[in-house]
Design a protein around this nucleic acid. Structure first.
Lengths: 341, 341
DNA sequence: CTGTTAGCGCATTCAG
DNA sequence: CTGAATGCGCTAACAG
């Protein structure tokens, strides 16, 4: 039977009532004890806790949330888990939530904003305390739902647009510009760009725009492109590098849409015996751990995804209300001068 | 304000009642329409949908779940997100759930079974339809809660123990044995083992046991160990490799606790100019994508994490009841004969 | 095809 | 410090 068909949740039949009866107290007393709220006599607590043990009572949060109008759920929406940056954000979210009794409810859009719309609708129906969502790329309907709902919304990763409530992330445009400037300063002149499918990856495009601007401002440009039709991956990076290396224009640097792609580029060079950075410079984006561990450390832009997730949670819960003013938090980035460019 | 302090969820005040009033029908009719359940006149549906649009009504699933005693939540518990294998499992879970209206609620234990216990308790209080949990390593209390609850439990990744209900995964012990056999057949004799902190990683230890047995059965053994005190990573693999290479016993093969570690080993060799596999063979575990893209494809054991996640969902929902008998699904593994061993 | 009647299990007043 | 009453928003029978 596929989950499409509903299955009844067999709730263990124990309820506050059972515990109350067994302990010889009222339901409200049990409730208070379970939530450590309000004054309770030690002796009573003792008795109730025994009854809880004996019955194996597990409070029903669904009922609790309904009664208190206070769900302890936090909706988290990311486009993918296959790119390690998103699990990293989730770890930050997790860290931010630890110790609280909020539960993250995580959903994946696969970079599909229509799917995202459904996910948001579905998440909203759980009345979450907040929604943390990656990026600014939403359908009008999604934007409307989020704006009109009463939940606090944090748009993560990106700050190159106006947020619904709060944005936490870095300027990918500026990061691209910084990368371009750095490479120009290092004396590279013949640039190639190895990218992946942009249609869904707004941030990769923003970085590209930044790079282009930096090169243009230096009177330069990108001489050759190789775009992989699909999500970024090490394999795609390898392929695109091979393609760029076998085209007529002789390049002295390749800029990649992200570190996964760039690592593929490094692997290609290692395999083909191309010396980095003399023969070919390689520059990535993100600052993944693996880049630092390569035989030559990957030159890249470092950002802090864990921090983005953690700060997102903190900002979301900073005020007890939905924030009255839009707010943008820049978590910054850093040009990491590795050994490949 | 930290999430420790509760924030009221500002529910948008629209309820079935408002919609019903506006559409001039009863609440149950609205409810039926929202859930596409039961017979409804087209004309009525029309009117109600208009009212839904106009009011921006979002059904409250918390109330719905309480009334129907049927939460559409699925608890998913994994030890970490920093090891890419777990996001892969989650992707499989996600794929299995897609199209259904079940929501995964994901929690991370950081390999701490006491934290896991709290997480299970907390998850159970949401009355999930199922709990998918990585591994067999639980506290007695966790085991008891899970066994005594009425939710279906799937233990993922591992099948080297008796499950609570259902286990979906591979035998890490057998995989280790297969790896050992393979390396013996290839003629390697002086083995090193580069591992990470096992205390929390039961599966890594199982694989190690399998390897040891295979070597023992061939009259061999592991000549040198290097154990990193912390989680596995490429960096740790590099370090442990360096350590093994600088100790007196000359090794002809190093077996790693997993692919992250092994990739670090490959990087060390590439950097130090050690030829693989002639001078040193490198063997991993997991079959990560990156291993295939290295200048030389990493020899490893391939497993299918995505499949584990997907099948776990399918098995969990296969029967409408909690399964009466324990059930073990072996998703298998494969020795991948790469170019490093 | 639609409306009515009862709760789901708990948290929250408010009395005592 | 504790108990009784009320209702959160919705779904599930059952009538009609």
């Amino acid at each position: 039977m596929h989950p499409k068909q509903r299955l009844p949740t067999k709730k263990s039949k124990m309820t506050v009532k059972d515990v109350a009866l067994r302990a010889g107290v009222s339901e409200s007393t049990v409730s208070r004890i379970m939530r450590n709220k309000g004054p309770v006599a030690d002796e009573t607590r003792q008795r109730v806790m025994e009854a809880v043990q004996a019955t194996g009572y597990v409070p029903n949060r669904i009922a609790g949330s309904l009664a208190s109008l206070d769900s302890h759920l936090v909706g988290v929406i990311v486009p993918s888990l296959s790119n390690i940056v998103f699990p990293e954000v989730l770890q930050g979210v997790n860290a931010g939530l630890r110790g609280s009794d909020y539960q993250p409810v995580i959903s994946i859009t696969d970079y599909d904003i229509n799917l995202e719309e459904n996910i948001v609708r579905s998440l909203l129906s759980w009345k979450p305390a907040a929604i943390l969502i990656a990026g600014f790329d939403h359908t009008p309907a999604t934007h409307r739902m989020l704006s009109e709902s009463d939940v606090r919304v944090v748009e993560m990763m990106d700050i190159d647009a106006t947020p619904i409530d709060i944005a936490v992330g870095m300027s990918h445009r500026n990061a691209g510009y910084a990368a371009g400037q750095y490479l120009v300063e290092r004396g590279y002149r013949q640039f190639g760009y190895a990218g992946h499918d942009w249609k869904a990856d707004r941030r990769a495009r923003l970085r590209y725009d930044g790079i282009s601007d930096a090169l243009r401002d230096a009177g330069l440009g990108i001489a050759a492109h190789a775009m992989f039709d699909g999500p970024s991956s090490v394999g795609a990076g390898r392929e695109m590098t091979a393609r760029l290396c076998s085209q007529p224009t002789k390049l002295d640097a390749i800029i990649y849409s992200n570190d996964d792609m760039a690592v593929g580029g490094v692997f290609h060079c290692l395999g083909a015996g191309i010396r980095m950075p003399d023969e070919l410079a390689v520059f990535g984006f993100n600052g993944l751990d693996i880049g630092r561990e390569l035989p030559q450390a990957l030159s890249t832009i470092r950002s802090n995804r864990f921090l983005i997730g953690k700060i997102s949670v903190e900002k979301a819960f900073e005020s007890p209300e939905r924030p009255p003013e839009k707010c943008v938090i820049d978590t910054g980035f850093e040009v990491f001068k590795g050994e490949t460019a």
